[in-house]
Computed example of a mutant assay.
Amino acid sequence: MIVINLDVMMAKRKMGLTELAGKVGITLANLSILKNNKAKAVRLETLDAICKALGCQPGDILEFVDGEEEGNGS
């Protein structure tokens, strides 16, 4: 599973949701969905804008975690 560590990078950059949403050009609701790992997908255009705003690489935000670590009982 892919985990979005947006909250970690935002904390490192001392940037809040409202400021980042303004810089990226997406709604607070959509940014919150990303931040809380509720997103099913993210557009590359959005990822590009987030990386530009935070001065980071996609790998600083996205992380692969083996699905077995989710506690699915297997």
Rank of each mutant, 00 (worst) to 15 (best):
E19W: 11
V3D: 06
K52L: 11
A41L: 10
G22A: 07
C51A: 10
N37Y: 00
V8G: 04
G59T: 09
K23V: 06
M15V: 13
I33E: 15
L28N: 13
K14F: 12
L44D: 14
N30P: 10
E63V: 10
I26Q: 06
V8D: 11
A11N: 12
T27S: 12
K52Q: 13
K35Y: 01
V42K: 03
E68Q: 08
A29E: 15
A41Y: 14
E70R: 03
L34Y: 07
D66T: 07
I2M: 08
D48Y: 11
L6M: 10
G22T: 06
C56D: 05
I33W: 15
K52P: 04
L47Q: 09
L44S: 08
K40F: 11
A21P: 02
L6F: 01
Q57A: 12
G73A: 08
K14M: 14
L28C: 08
S32I: 01
K38R: 15
R13L: 14
M10A: 04
N5D: 09
N30V: 07
K23L: 11
V3S: 06
E70Y: 07
A49K: 15
E68P: 04
R43W: 03
G25R: 08
A29V: 10
L47G: 05
A11H: 07
C51D: 02
K52Y: 11
I4T: 02
E19D: 15
I33V: 11
I61Q: 02
I2A: 08
G71F: 03
A21G: 07
G73K: 05
F64V: 08
A21I: 01
Q57R: 13
G59E: 09
L34C: 07
M10D: 01
E68L: 02
M10F: 02
G25N: 07
G25P: 08
I61P: 00
L47V: 09
L28I: 09
Q57M: 15
M1R: 03
N36I: 10
T46R: 06
N72Q: 10
M10Q: 02
E45C: 11
V65H: 05
V8S: 09
K35S: 05
V24T: 04
C51Y: 00
A53S: 11
C51H: 00
R43E: 10
A11C: 14
A29L: 07
V65R: 13
E69Y: 14
C56F: 00
M15C: 12
L28F: 03
T18N: 14
K38W: 12
M10Y: 01
C51Q: 03
A53L: 07
G55C: 09
C56I: 07
D48A: 13
D60P: 01
I4H: 00
L47S: 08
A21S: 13
G25T: 06
M15Q: 14
F64M: 14
V3N: 05
N36L: 11
A41K: 11
I33M: 12
G71N: 04
E70L: 09
M10K: 03
D48E: 13
G67R: 11
G59I: 04
I50W: 00
G25Y: 02
D48W: 15
V65L: 12
P58E: 13
G22W: 03
V42F: 00
G71W: 02
L31I: 02
L6Q: 04
D60V: 00
A49C: 10
